[in-house]
Design a binder for these strands. Structure first.
Lengths: 342, 342
DNA sequence: CTGAAAGCGCTAACAC
DNA sequence: GTGTTAGCGCTTTCAG
């Protein structure tokens, strides 16, 4: 018969005929100081009453929570979803519950989100948002500082380009070699025989997008190819953005042999745009993306891309936030497929 | 100069020169009972100290939290990710923070997950897991009952088939017309001229999969078509499952004119399998899916499917869990596209 | 309108 | 080993 309301430790202690303290020790405290018999009594009492410790109360008493806050741009985006999956797994391994908040890419909202999170007094927080260039606003900078001051371990995803942003004191950066990966991709494409390029740059203010563009340009340069500014077309950082940017390129009459979209999602949009013009993606114009999102594994033609171990990134970020001494850098791996086969 | 440690209400009260009670009322309490001047003093003190209320403490004091627990099968699955996005948005509108937990489809894990959640004393919980047929285990049934008894509003996603499961007292079901949608799809395909079918059934123990198969079969029956048992092939409830099932079908030499995969993801796998055999999906054999996952909008051929308003479902579930009186039923919409064009 | 004081459910010294 | 007793940070009667 389910008890009404909620069962407290006191109820358990009473039923077991022991003190509150003993009950507490039996159920959570630093083990080995409770007589087997009492322990047994307490446990069965707890079970009988269906007692579950109130973590909020434990938190205020202990002065520390079992919560890890994850901030993502948009949980519906497979990129963030994969990272979240890894983070949840790792947090779970550490006995932490994950709270997820989306900023929707809105810099202003990021500020209020940080305030809410601060109120949660999380043990750790993972920032997986595509920071805007020019540094996060002072407000969100302060928000992060407050979290750190509050004792939370903070980890943030970064690119191998924002040296300064990395400077926020107290945050463990996990740098993703966006720049390096894009450069490697450029090299691979050149070696594959491509010689004329364009870049679907996404939102140039997002450091992730920016780094990838930067890297790609550098990679081409290393092979003696200079990309004209006009060949770098900005757009929304989404599937539709990719479609739009590619369309603009085609409308302009400049059809490069190969385009690099800074995201698989954008690449898919580009492929659609190419197809809609009656051209054959992968043949008339090659398309490469970035991320190697699983969900897109079956698009045709198969996308050349830079694979990022997204779930692992989520897990690593969590471990870094918790202070573990794991790698602070993760590399992408160039994967050449049909979309740039020529 | 960031204070060390953490700022408490007492600090604010002291700085403002008022009592703890007044400070509390000024910052949260039922408004209108604080003199404008004190209110002002308290607020500026709070701001100066960068005070953020400790929600855990508020929770124990108030006896109620500002947390909504969302349980999903796998956050990396676009189906759940979309639902989560909607849920997070709705929860946010209600001033609640969302905690996400994955069961990984593991029934056993579901039990422990429920225990952890119970400890969180959430204001509401949304169960978005594909329950296994034959009823959730007694354990998880109890877990849910405990949550309800603990005062949490509970909402659960269900199919228009599990009449009994719906019976769990106290939980607000949100039934998704999986069966009805699949039946409608079957009808539409028949009317489109298809006459020989097969079903890639996914895991027959998952009620979602089961309902869709059931519905499809019924839909065909309504049009005088009887599906032989051999034409219903089970598999994993995933992209690879779809690939495998389709392959098995083709290996068996029985090539239906049209296959229905209970999930878009599985449909994509089927398309790949068809293509790998040198056949042309959409022409040699049609493929239809279910969900209309955004991410798959660009696969070729475009998938015929049943569109589910995933984000809205997430939002509705949250509102139901919170006790709002919103629809308890959501329909899918048949969308015919190239993959079944003939 | 404001303050003093009693909790909320649990943990952690500090005795016995 | 086990019980007592302060708190943890905040809300909320109950008197002023």
């Amino acid at each position: 018969m389910p008890e009404r309301g909620t069962v407290t430790l006191a109820d358990v202690a009473e039923l077991a005929g022991v003190s509150l303290a003993t009950a507490s020790r039996a159920l959570n405290g630093s083990a080995r100081k409770v007589r087997p018999e009492s322990l047994e009594r307490v446990h069965s009492a707890a079970q009988e009453l269906r007692y579950t410790a109130n973590v909020q109360a434990q938190a205020v008493a202990r002065g520390t929570t079992t919560t890890l806050a994850l901030v993502v741009g948009d949980i519906a985006d497979p990129y963030f979803a994969a990272i979240a999956a890894g983070a949840i797994r790792a947090a779970d391994d550490a006995g932490l519950v994950v709270t997820i908040t989306s900023t929707g890419g809105d810099a202003a909202r990021e500020e209020s989100v940080l305030a809410v999170i601060a109120g949660l007094r999380p043990r750790a927080v993972v920032l997986a948002v595509s920071r805007h260039l020019g540094g996060s606003s002072e407000a969100s900078r302060n928000g992060v500082a407050a979290l750190v001051a509050g004792g939370a371990g903070v980890a943030a995803l970064m690119s191998d380009v924002d040296g300064i942003a990395a400077g926020t004191p107290g945050v463990h950066g996990l740098v993703i070699r966006n720049l390096g990966g894009a450069a490697a991709l450029a090299g691979a494409l050149v070696e594959q025989g491509h010689d004329s390029f364009a870049v679907l740059a996404g939102d140039p203010d997002l450091v992730t997008a920016h780094a990838r563009v930067e890297g790609f340009v550098a990679g081409l340069a290393a092979h003696g190819i200079r990309l004209p500014d006009a060949a770098i077309v900005p757009s929304a950082f989404s599937r539709d953005g990719g479609y739009a940017a590619m369309s603009r390129l085609l409308d302009a009459g400049s059809v490069p042999r190969c385009v690099f979209a800074v995201t698989d999602l954008m690449a898919v949009g580009a492929v659609a745009a190419i197809r809609d013009r009656g051209l054959v993606p992968g043949v008339d114009v090659g398309v490469a993306g970035f991320d190697d999102v699983q969900m897109l594994a079956d698009v045709v033609p198969a996308l050349s891309t830079v694979r990022l171990p997204l779930e692992e990134i989520g897990a690593l970020a969590v471990r870094r936030a918790l202070g573990e001494d794991v790698t602070g850098v993760v590399d992408g791996e160039v994967v050449l497929r049909a979309s740039t086969a020529r």
